[in-house]
Simulated scan of single mutants.
Amino acid sequence: MRIKVKTFQELSLKELYEVLALRSEVFVVEQDCIYQDIDGKDQKALHILGYKDEQLVAYTRCFKKGDYFDEASIGRVLVKENHRKHAYGHIIFEASVKEIKSRYNSEIIKISAQKYLIKFYESHGFKQIGEGYLEDGIPHIEMLRS
């Protein structure tokens, strides 16, 4: 998988369209979640795009501390459904952690994780904090890596 890292301003219209289409495919259609994905935070985010054979198959967005949480954070972590068997989620997530460390000089990262992915995030050094909660109708838990 080939990784591209871009600020919002660096995204081409084609890339932005691909990102929004894939996020809609996974978070709205696949997860049957009728909540607004476009939240006004993309402009502050660093976008991590994963391509296989020129197709966007994995994505995350990262924030420096203070832009989403008090800590640096990673969100909108996704892999296109028919590409999940290739460990692309681990690759894109590790690329995201690396970018936060290098660009934002931050070792502490906070995420709002879908509860069914706790073991995935624990495998990347995250620990559960606080109580579970519903976000857009889906069970979540805050997790921290320090």
Rank of each mutant, 00 (worst) to 15 (best):
L11F: 05
S73R: 02
D32T: 11
Q128K: 15
D37F: 00
Y133K: 13
A45G: 08
I38E: 06
L22G: 04
H140W: 13
S106W: 02
I34Y: 14
D32W: 07
S146E: 15
Y116F: 15
H86T: 03
N105H: 15
I109L: 07
S106G: 07
G125K: 13
K6G: 04
E94D: 12
Y51T: 15
C62T: 01
K80E: 09
A45W: 01
V26C: 07
D70R: 11
Y51A: 13
Q128E: 14
I109D: 04
I118S: 06
L134I: 05
K14D: 13
L20E: 03
Q36K: 11
S146N: 10
V28C: 09
L144V: 14
K65N: 10
F63C: 01
V57P: 02
E122L: 07
E54A: 14
L13A: 11
D67Q: 15
E135T: 09
F8W: 15
S12N: 12
T7Y: 09
I91H: 10
S73N: 10
K41M: 04
I100P: 03
K85N: 12
I48R: 01
I100E: 05
Y104T: 01
E25C: 01
Y104L: 05
Q43L: 09
R103A: 14
I91F: 09
Q36E: 15
K80Q: 11
E71D: 15
E94W: 01
I34S: 12
R61V: 00
R2E: 14
K101N: 08
G40F: 02
Q43M: 10
S123E: 04
S24Y: 12
Y35N: 11
K110I: 01
Q36H: 09
N82Y: 06
I38N: 06
E94R: 10
D37R: 00
F27V: 03
G130Y: 12
A72I: 05
I48Y: 01
I111F: 06
A21D: 13
V28Y: 03
L20Y: 11
D67G: 04
L78R: 01
F93Y: 15
V29S: 10
H140P: 10
A58D: 03
K41H: 07
F93G: 00
I111P: 05
I100G: 05
D37K: 00
Y121N: 03
L46K: 03
E94F: 01
E142C: 08
Y88A: 03
A45Y: 02
M143W: 13
I38A: 08
F93R: 05
D67L: 04
Q9W: 08
L16P: 02
F27A: 04
N105Q: 14
E18G: 09
K98A: 14
I138R: 05
K41E: 03
V29W: 11
A87W: 09
